[in-house]
Design a protein around this nucleic acid. Structure first.
Length: 645
DNA sequence: AGCGGCACTTAGAAAATATCGG
DNA sequence: CCGATATTTTCTAAGTGCCGCT
């Protein structure tokens, strides 16, 4: 590589990255200004095009709405921070020479901020607080032992939390009820506490009914009312939902403070039903840039603390009272901070690809090791790799539901069979994993923890137990897509193949869901639709036959010929619709207990999917919705059809 | 060297919204 | 256009992994 070229790149790198603050800032301001002008002009335009007849207006309105949508899209696209731009640029220039992964990658790493620094400038409005609780209307009553009891504000609010959940299974569980009652009593006045001593004598029915009515009323709102609500919400998002990070406006993920309520732990959680208390500004730590405006706390309040820590990515945090854990306000997945990290994750997984064979050989060896520790490590790694189990960190006993991962499996979770269902040496797993999802699997094995991660990172920098899940998920997707999809398939079949590949990964990672309550019913509905369509098709076919006969009889009458054509089209349309529905039925049936979203969002290198779409000529929006396209914008932008994981 | 806590990713449920088909 | 159903978004719990402290 010539010196001139290097110099050139370095210059560009410096230029791009260091682009003096004021110039960069100016550009940013300019683009914001332009957007503001465009927005402020829009209503005027619509007004100008106003009058004429109602029918025409509505048509025009539709057109205008469409144009507006496109414009908005373009604007968004223009405002998108293409933080991966330098990489793509350099890669494009260098890929011919094949030097990218060494020289340029290093250059790229160097250009990032110094160790641990995540940003230089960060400004935001602080989190958004839920509204204060308002007393119940006078005609809605809580009864104790059959008598009306007017509760104080605090106790009433908590009573309503319980009342709202009355339809939920939670409220029938002893643990939930006991925890709730204990915490509820803490919120009562002395008088209330003396009176209310038995949850079974509490009647929340009126509160429950009121809540349900409110929900119904919200559903039944007129279009106009809904629009008003929507606009009000958008205003909140506009104000609190964004921050400025290093000159770019970025969407915040969860800018709303979690409202108070009853803790809904998963599975047999010992703390379910406990009161999750209301968070005050006095509980909240704000994190922002030193030079930025400090967000204003709600009137009459102050923040717990304001700090300027640019080695972390959160904008605000508070400690939650049920588990004592920290909650954070962080950026949306489409942001640079999240996207870059995501990209990095997949790069580590790809690096594993080149050395996974060696690692596998080694743990097979280590399984025979004389040292107990080495042997245990090897077995754990074997299962993490083969079954995509999670690492299984230690948890405090009694504080959470009893769930395990690979390194925390206990004897009772495993049964060893010398022979099971014709297979030798079978390990039977049965345990509750993350979110209390049951893992059940029978695995034939061949005859012959923090320590684990340390060992892994010595094999490959950045390698940890969870990388195996990412790696095996992504590589499985790639292989399955390769095996299942054909260029000659129609679009519907192609999508089925994609879903099946995705499904293979979800099964591997044990991503489950409870089948929707309406599943059987909706399946039956679809089936009857299919049957109906079949009959229709048969009818259309016989009609076509008849029409053809007619043509033959009356030697090529042009009118009759046209009828035949029409009938042919009808048959075709019918066949297409039938095929679509049948594929839909297959897909839905196969998806009954499987959730695809988690793997798509967290485990599958998006570049595999983008490349597949390009190769198969499938539009990207068939497999990624808007927020997925936003999250993976970096991959969409930089990936060609030739990408291989 | 072991542990507790902090920061961040991953997860399924539920709510909200869009789409479909009669 | 309207209700049922499907999809998307929101919500927040539940994991992983590492760092700094003792």
């Amino acid at each position: 590589m010539g010196t001139a070229e290097i110099t050139n790149k370095l210059w560009f790198g410096t230029f791009y990255n260091g682009l003096t603050d004021c110039v960069n800032h100016l550009l940013c301001k300019l683009s914001c200004f332009c957007a503001a002008v465009l927005i402020s002009q829009k209503p005027k335009k619509e007004e100008a095009e106003h009058p004429v007849t109602t029918k025409k207006k509505s048509k025009e309105e539709i057109e205008a709405a469409k144009a507006l949508k496109i414009k908005k899209k373009e604007e968004e696209e223009q405002q998108r921070w293409r933080w991966w731009g330098l990489f793509v640029f350099l890669y494009a220039r260098c890929v011919g020479g094949g030097c990218m992964n060494l020289f340029m990658k290093e250059r790229w790493e160097e250009d990032k901020y110094e160790d641990g620094v995540k940003w230089k400038f960060l400004e935001h409005r602080g989190p958004f607080f839920p509204p204060e609780y308002q007393h119940l209307p006078d005609n809605v009553n809580f009864y104790y032992n059959g008598k009306v009891v007017k509760l104080g504000l605090a106790a009433e609010e908590v009573a309503l939390f319980f009342a709202q959940m009355l339809d939920h299974e939670y409220t029938t569980k002893d643990v939930f009820r006991n925890n709730f009652f204990k915490d509820w009593r803490k919120e009562m006045t002395l008088e209330e506490r003396v009176l209310i001593s038995d949850l079974n004598k509490c009647d929340f029915q009126e509160l429950h009914t009121m809540h349900k009515e409110k929900v119904e009323a919200r559903k039944a709102m007129s279009k106009e009312e809904k629009l008003v609500m929507k606009e009000a919400n958008q205003k909140i998002v506009e104000e609190y939902g964004f921050c400025i990070l290093d000159h770019h406006r970025e969407r915040i993920g969860n800018f709303k403070i979690e409202p108070p309520g009853l803790f809904r732990g998963r599975g047999e959680h010992p703390k379910q039903g406990m009161l999750k208390k209301r968070i005050q500004p006095e509980d909240v730590i704000i994190n922002c840039g030193k030079k930025s405006c400090i967000p204003e706390p709600p009137a009459g309040h102050h923040w717990k603390e304001v700090r300027h820590d640019n080695t972390v990515t959160w904008l605000a945090s508070w400690t939650e009272n049920v588990q004592g854990s920290c909650k954070y306000v962080m950026l949306n997945p489409s942001s640079k901070l999240k996207g870059e990290k995501d990209w990095e994750k997949y790069e580590v997984a790809r690096r594993l690809k080149s050395c996974v064979n060696g690692i596998r050989q080694q743990y097979q060896q280590d399984i025979k090791s004389k040292q107990m520790e080495t042997r245990q490590r090897a077995v754990a790694l074997y299962f993490i790799d083969k079954l995509a189990l999670r690492a299984g960190n230690e948890k405090e006993e009694g504080e959470t539901a009893d769930t395990v991962g690979c390194c925390s499996l206990r004897v009772e979770h495993i049964t060893l069979h010398d022979l099971l269902e014709d297979k030798e040496c079978v390990v039977e797993f049965d345990f509750l994993g993350k979110d209390c999802i049951r893992y059940y699997n029978k695995v034939p094995v061949t005859k012959r923890t923090c320590l684990l991660n340390k060992h892994l990172s010595s094999l490959l920098p950045g390698l940890t137990a969870k990388v195996f899940r990412t790696f095996n998920a992504s590589i499985t997707l790639q292989e399955q897509l390769q095996q299942l999809s054909n260029m000659t398939d129609n679009p519907t079949e192609k999508l089925l193949s994609y879903n099946r590949a995705n499904r293979a990964v979800a099964v591997l990672c044990n991503h489950q869901r409870v089948p929707p309550k309406t599943f059987d019913q909706s399946m039956a509905n679809l089936q009857s639709k299919i049957d109906g369509r079949r009959e229709q098709l048969a009818l259309a076919k016989s009609e076509l036959k008849l029409a053809k006969k007619e043509v033959k009889a009356h030697s090529s009458d042009s009118k009759l010929q046209a009828v035949v054509e029409r009938k042919k089209k009808a048959v075709q349309r019918c066949e297409e619709q039938l095929m679509k529905m049948e594929v839909q039925a297959t897909n839905r049936e196969e998806n009954k207990q499987i959730a695809l979203g988690t793997s798509k969002l967290n485990y599958l290198d998006p570049r595999i999917s983008v490349a597949w779409c390009k190769n198969m000529e499938v539009p990207l929006d068939k497999i990624y919705n808007k927020s997925q396209r936003d999250k993976f914008a970096w991959a969409v932008d930089m990936t060609g059809a030739d990408f291989i994981f």
